[in-house]
Structures are given as C-alpha cells and as structure tokens.
C-alpha cells in the first residue's frame, strides 16, 4: 500500500512543479536511519524521487507553512492531523487557503522511535518499518521481521479519530480501520494532579522544542521570550516551568489538533498530550467544538454565543 501511495505522491508533486502551479513541495524524505524520516523541500521535478511515505513520516509539516506560504504558493503532503493544522492556520488567517495545494494521505497511525523502543525493538538493528494492513512490519538486521500491532503507534495517534484529511486538493489512500482509544478525563483529585504535574514539569529544561515543533505556536514573539513584560523567568525550576507549560497548554486550548509532535520532540519525554487532550476535552464539552475541521468556521475562542456554557455556572 505504502509504495503505491509513495509513487502517487511523487507523481502529484511532479505535476505541481512541472505546471509551475507551485514552486515548492514540502513532504518527507528518507532520514539518516531507517526508522526516521526528515522534512523535504522539493523545488525541482527531478527531485520528487526523494519523497517517501512510510510509518516514520511523523513530522507535522504544517509547521513550515506560516513562513513559506506567505511568500509563494506551495504544495504540501499531509496526514489527516497535519491537514487539521492547516485548517487552524487558515481560520486564524496565518495563511491563505489559495496559497497551499494539499496532497492529502489517509493514515493508519505513525510509529516513531519512542513507540519502537516501547515495543522492545533495538533501534540499531532496524532496517525498515512498513505498514502491513492493520499492523506494522519491522525488519531488523538479523533478518527477522517482527510484527507490531497498531497499539504501538506514536502517542498522538492513539486517540486519533480522524484517519482521512479534512481538506485536500488531491486525496490518496483508502480509509484505514482504526479503533481510537477514548479520551478519559484526567485522573485523581486536584492535589494529586498537582503533584503529578509538578513531578513531570520538574524535568523540563525549557528548550521550547514543544513550541518550535508546533504548527499552532506561530507567535513571532512568544510570551516566554518577552523581557519587556516578563511573564516567566529563564529560571529552570518548578515555578517557571509550571508557568511555561500552563501558558503553552492554555494558548492551545481549542486550537491543538492532537498530532502529538510536542510530546515526540520533547527530549525529556514530558507527557504533554495528556494536558492537550484534557484541554481539548473541556472545549468539546463546553462548546461542542472540535478544532481544525472547517476552514470557514470561526475559531472557538474567536466567537461568542449568548448560550455558551459558563464553566463556573453563572
């Protein structure tokens, strides 16, 4: 399945570049090791052979659009979650829909190196990772091929209910079977949750990779970087770490589409998706809103209705 889609991605990219409809196609290319891919920026039709499609295509490429789609019309290959990031960017007027040509691919779930490690795979032995119907094939150097079930997906994919892109100009792939896990409310009492998160945030080294990898974090000057009005100090410690993570999560409430890239990027493995999902669950409950579905719709925090529920019951 993957190889056929890969060929079609290349053909579509080639068409776009040859017709000069776009000057650039953003996709994924082979990484420096078989279990990783890397974002690819293709400007010439001869280079489309570099594009790949496999379970390691984890990067949400919409993160690059705010910079490049302002200047020129670009093509972009997206998974369903990435397509929802594009919707958010269009809704929030960061890019114009006319400036992006979207090659959308259905997605059974992504396997990143954290997921592989959790499944007990020795990364140094991996030769290839492929989809195989409703599971993954991991081929290793010893000639063995182990099959991982779809439970072994990247954290963001576990609860994903959107397996086909919500907007696209070309759509590829068949609708996969998927059984997303339900999103449960965060467990524990207030003080237990406080203790849990204090323990997690303590690890943070404040590299801001979670912000940099996030397509929705596009502010030209982040609140955390401001020193004319200091919202947070550079102090790596619980108080400022807490301020950063709460600020990040609050700013993404009703906007995060749950791709899980923040958690993947985090070198300290902070479970940021737990926070993101909790905020998303509240927004869904209060306003019946799922982010990143319709480019014509107003963002949930950019609209007001008299019958909006008030969480404080007033």
């Amino acid at each position: 399945m993957a190889n056929e889609i890969e060929a079609r991605i290349r053909a579509e990219a080639k068409k776009l570049l040859e017709s000069s409809e776009v000057t650039l196609v953003i996709g994924w290319e082979a990484g420096s090791v078989p279990f990783k891919t890397s974002p690819a920026f293709i400007e010439s039709p001869e280079d489309v052979e570099r594009l790949v499609w496999n379970p390691a295509c984890t990067n949400n490429l919409a993160v690059y659009l705010t910079e490049v789609a302002k200047r020129a019309r670009v093509g972009i290959v997206v998974k369903p979650c990435d397509s929802r990031s594009i919707v958010t960017l269009v809704q929030e007027k960061q890019i114009s829909r006319e400036n992006v040509t979207i090659i959308g691919v259905t997605c059974p779930g992504i396997v990143d190196d954290t997921a592989l490690k959790k499944a007990g795979v020795r990364l140094i032995d991996v030769l290839a990772v492929d989809w195989n119907g409703d599971s993954f094939n991991v081929t290793t150097g010893s000639g063995k091929s182990s099959v991982l079930t779809l439970d072994a997906v990247k954290e963001g994919c576990r609860t994903c209910a959107h397996r086909a892109p919500v907007i696209s100009d070309v759509s590829l792939g068949e609708m996969p079977d998927a059984n997303p896990l339900p999103v449960e409310p965060m467990e524990g009492s207030f003080s237990e949750r406080r203790e849990y998160w204090a323990n997690e945030f303590e690890r943070c080294i404040r590299c801001y990779a979670c912000r940099q990898i996030c397509p929705a974090c596009y502010c030209t000057k982040c609140f955390a970087d401001r020193n004319d009005l200091k919202w947070t100090n550079k102090h790596v410690g619980i108080s400022d770490n807490w301020m950063w993570h709460m600020g990040r999560a609050m700013h993404l409430a009703g906007r995060c589409i749950g791709c899980g890239e923040c958690e993947r990027a985090c070198p300290m493995d902070l479970p940021m998706m737990k926070l993101n999902r909790e905020f998303a669950r509240h927004v869904e409950e209060l306003f019946g809103y799922t982010p990143g579905m319709d480019p014509e719709e107003l963002p949930v925090l950019g609209q007001f209705n008299y019958d909006d529920k008030d969480p404080n019951g007033h």
Binding site: C207, Q212, P267
Partner: peptide, 9 residues
C-alpha cells in the same frame, strides 16, 4: 536550515 525548527535541543 530549511528543516531546522530552531528549538536548540
């Protein structure tokens, strides 16, 4: 640089 997201990890 085109790939780099500037995170500094």
């Amino acid at each position: 640089a085109r790939k780099c997201i500037g995170c500094g990890i």
